[in-house]
Design a protein around this nucleic acid. Sequence first.
RNA 1: CGGAGUGUAGCUCAGCCAGGUAGAGCACCGCCUUCGGGAGGCGGGGGCCGGAGGUCCGAAUCCUCUCACUCCGACCA
Length: 426
Amino acid sequence: MRLSAYFLPTLKEAPAEATIASHRLMLRAGLIVQTASGIYSWLPLGLNVLSKITRIIEEEQEAIGANKILMTTIQPVELWRESGRDNSYGEEMLRFKDRRGHELLYSPTNEEQVTDIFRRFVKSYRQLPQMLFQVHWKFRDEMRPRFGIMRGREFLMKDGYSFDLDLESAKKTYKKIFDAYLTTFRRMGLVPIPVRADSGAIGGDMSHEFQILAETGESVLFYDALLLEPSLASAAERAAAYAVSQEKHNPYTCSVPPNRLRQSRGIEVGHVFYFGTKYTRAMNASIMGPEGTPIYPEMGSYGIGVTRLVGAIIEASHDEKGIVWPEAVAPFRVGLVSLHAEEAACAEASTDLYTKLSNAGIEVLYDDREERMGVKLSDMDLIGLPWQVLVGPKKLAAGVVELKNRKTGEVQELSQEGVLNFLGRP
RNA sequence: CGGAGUGUAGCUCAGCCAGGUAGAGCACCGCCUUCGGGAGGCGGGGGCCGGAGGUCCGAAUCCUCUCACUCCGACCA
């Protein structure tokens, strides 16, 4: 992508409303723009990241056999009358009427809708288990939206739903999705901490939040330091290690040695629930069981805050100059800068390298603008692509260009072939 | 929903207390000079001072109402 043809409105100064790093950087790097309180539009660079994150989530969901669907954002209120949540969900739910006076709502979550789809088509225990998921927009009319997309009213969410024959099977499904979530977040360069949590209004027993440690997080959690020391603990030990939300923490019964107990703030990026037959019963979604008697399947639901993840990743990975994208979610892998685009030799060499890199399947953002190099270089640092290639007349005369690692700042001088070989490596 | 703030140029803000021609820096447009880390000169465009009402000869400034946004708290799959 040529920057001269890309819609990337970077800001030199941070807008006054942004108080945390990720919000500031998302505005400055041209990822999002605010439309109303808690409602944001996504610009090309931000949308690109959103797509990368979504892709990883989808791959990991499909790897465990979940089926991707796409439900509607608008639902009839009748479904919620069936489940009994019509009255209990409250002001957070955005309701409105169509021209015929039919009461509708904008989905804050989709348990009712997915249960409705399930009951229409699944009639036998032989068809279980089922896992369905989508990545779609939600609206929750929060009393107090804040921190940009961290707590927005409109947000993109991966929401998954499982149906199992019995508790034993439901536990296996829960574990499968739990593990997939860990893999998903780690692939994005994050360190997720699964935390035993309250299951909230949704009810049920098994419930975990996935937290990313960050000072700007809204949650408070207590955990065993072993969780963050992979070298000191086996996977099994870590899985069993203590980590609970503030509400669940009891200093008198906590088994963690005081020297290993940590308190921290976190960003909740995922939440998994098991809630049994709450909805299948309420909505009469029974199937025929092996004994010839009707059975209400056991359900769970599983959420990942996709838009919130963008904020969480930036909170976890930035410096004073800007964002430092982990490779897996970077909008482009390389930023190619023509330091003197108005000089023919420099422009030609840059464009040539851009073509070669692109042909090699490497995602490149090519700054071919005739801007001052200082502006270009600070823009590149701000948007935080993992690698930067600087093409300037001086080095070019010596037959090399510079390859810079955004995170470490390390610079190596390579021939153009050298750059291709280096970045072409898997 | 309680509390505290802020709305003036695209952005960051001054001006308001003490009423009297609408301001600065950056950004933008033109020309020139520059060019290895947010350049310099000259010229230029851009404002219903959030909105409505009021006081006054006169309101960005004072008063009332209202809308929007932000922060703290409560709330929150």
